[in-house]
């Protein structure tokens, strides 16, 4: 297989990819370049961009708006961590079921939420968690609380919503990794004196790391630019960089500033993706692959 592939010319069969390439060129690459150019322009009366070129939007993004950027990265990192801590055990549980029927059923349940619109599900979450929502209502009625817990309209609400929304993206790649994991390595570790805990840290986790890295990337990257969840679950106190950017493209906004924010956000995500790729590459080389 590999030999056959190597003998082909690099461009042979390129036409198979042309529709997609064309689509991405027109609707992704060109707009992206436009955003990059606009980010260096001066704000016009209609919130658009005009000459001369300036760096002031980058100064503002990295200056007064940097707390929002940090908050977005922090919440994305927390979301990833929580998804990992809940998703790994779950994926481990599912992939170690002996019956294929049970495994399929569990996986089906994991992806079941995708059958409903994300917006509707987030509204439902809000209904559950709001001050006058279901959870607070029950707790107040039972007399366990004197006043409602603030579960939404803050960063906590955003975190709950994002972990809920992104958990399947963590579970599925880890599931694939653990399912491929050969449990004879655990026997070998036990045989060599490692208890369950050490066998996990020294053998199981390193060998399922590809799934952990893939899941983390799939959760972290979209979390940084999340828009819907912060709006519905975060209120004013839970605003993230994605909301700030969206606001700049409205009527009284500032498109060059929004563009600069977008470029900075994309650069950060790209930088982290690069780091991820380097880690993977490094471990692959270390494995002699």
């Amino acid at each position: 297989m590999r030999g056959e592939r190597a003998e082909r010319q690099p461009w042979q069969g390129l036409w198979l990819a042309t529709p997609t390439l064309f689509w991405l060129l027109v609707f992704f690459v060109l707009p992206l370049l436009l955003v990059a150019v606009v980010s260096f322009m001066t704000r016009a009366q209609d919130a658009g961009g005009m000459l001369p070129f300036t760096l002031q939007h980058y100064e503002r993004t990295l200056g007064i708006f940097s707390p929002i950027l940090w908050r977005s990265l922090r919440i994305a990192a927390l979301t990833t961590l929580l998804c990992l801590m809940m998703g790994y055990p779950l994926a481990f549980f599912i992939s170690t079921r002996r019956s294929t029927v049970v495994r399929s059923l569990c996986l089906f349940l994991v992806i079941l939420p995708f059958w409903t619109n994300f917006l509707i599900r987030t509204y439902a979450m809000r209904t559950l968690l709001a001050n006058e929502g279901t959870i607070n209502g029950i707790l107040l009625d039972l007399g366990l609380l004197l006043q409602p817990l603030r579960l939404v309209d803050n960063q906590f609400g955003v975190l709950i919503g994002m972990v809920y929304g992104f958990l399947p993206f963590m579970v599925l790649p880890i599931y694939a990794s653990v399912e491929r994991f050969d449990f004879r390595y655990v026997d070998a570790a036990h045989d060599l004196g490692a208890n369950d805990w050490r066998a996990f840290w020294r053998v199981v986790l390193p060998l399922t790391m590809p799934g952990v890295l893939a899941g983390s990337a799939l959760v972290f990257i979209p979390s940084v630019g999340a828009y819907v969840t912060p709006v519905l679950m975060g209120g004013v106190r839970g605003l993230l960089i994605g909301n700030l950017i969206a606001r700049q493209f409205g009527g009284s906004g500032n498109m060059p500033l929004g563009s600069a924010m977008s470029v900075v956000m994309m650069s950060v995500v790209l930088g982290i993706a690069l780091l991820y790729w380097l880690i993977q590459r490094f471990t692959a080389i270390a494995d002699g692959r």
């Binding site: 050969d182 004879r184 390595y185 045989d191 004196g193 060998l207 270390a286």
Partner: peptide, 18 residues
């Protein structure tokens, strides 16, 4: 197994690949 004074050479060896 991790407290027994025995060691095993496994079929297909089960050497840790990482």
């Amino acid at each position: 197994p991790f407290h027994r004074p025995v060691n095993t050479v496994f079929q297909d060896y089960a050497l840790f690949p990482h």
